[in-house]
């Protein structure tokens, strides 16, 4: 790689980075952890979930680490009281938006949202639960889509478009009414484009997409396989 080398500080420590990298990429290569939800190594970052927000010296507002490029001499703080407060509220907002009933979820114990709440010490929410009435799509022969558990991270949308090239998924409508949709709001099982590869299921951070027939706690996602595949494709290209 001929990219220009630059160095930045992350939580005080010097980290080597290359021009064009994001703060998150540089942090990971330098062995630093920044919490993320919508990010998945190997697919394009979108900066949607706002969990990876970091503070950069000289800039008042926090920046998303997954989409902000590194700059020479940058000093990044990944954990401050303000950021922790912010991340907690973000998780609380995700928890109240839909019906996350961890106790009866296929992904209980393997869910990134649940783990994020635990790591941030979220023991309750400060807002009223929304309790929306949402559907479950059981039309696909192998997989299930449960809107109750979806956090709209769009990992499935991106993995389907970028790695499988099928473009089955997208979000439709807007605001609180935003939903994941297959094709023209059809049933997943009716989708002409879906190859049934299951990449979206493995990429999904919660129990929103799961394999059929899994009972509570049985759905363990293998999103590292998505990242490995993306890496192989990158090497081939």
């Amino acid at each position: 790689m001929s990219q220009k080398k630059i160095s930045i500080r992350i939580d005080g420590a010097l980290v080597d980075a290359r021009e064009g990298q994001t703060i998150l990429q540089a942090a990971r290569e330098g062995g630093k952890t920044i919490p993320t939800l919508c990010d998945l190594d190997g697919i394009t970052p979108v900066g949607g979930c706002r969990i990876c927000m970091v503070e950069v010296e000289g800039i008042d507002r926090a920046l998303p680490a997954c989409t902000s490029p590194v700059q020479e001499g940058m000093s990044v703080k990944t954990t401050t009281p303000r950021l922790t407060q912010h991340r907690r509220l973000t998780v609380e907002l995700l928890l109240v938006e839909r019906n996350h009933i961890c106790a009866v979820c296929v992904s209980n114990g393997h869910c990134e949202l649940q783990t994020m709440a635990t790591n941030l010490g979220v023991s309750t929410v400060r807002l009223a639960y929304n309790f929306p009435k949402l559907e479950t799509d059981l039309s696909h022969p192998k997989y299930v889509l449960d809107h109750n558990r979806c956090i709209l991270c769009t990992r499935c949308v991106r993995v389907c478009a970028e790695l499988e090239g099928a473009h089955v998924w997208n979000l439709f409508s807007r605001g609180i009414n935003t939903r994941l949709t297959a094709d023209l709001n059809g049933k997943w099982g009716d989708s002409k484009g879906c190859t049934g590869c299951g990449k979206c299921v493995q990429a999904c951070p919660t129990g929103a997409l799961s394999e059929k027939g899994r009972a509570v706690e049985e759905m363990v996602k293998q999103n590292e396989r998505i990242s490995a595949l993306a890496q192989r494709r990158g090497a081939e290209a």
Partner: peptide, 12 residues
């Protein structure tokens, strides 16, 4: 343009 994208734009 993928169906899902057309629907996404038309509903946004």
């Amino acid at each position: 343009v993928p169906l899902s994208r057309v629907f996404s734009v038309a509903t946004f």
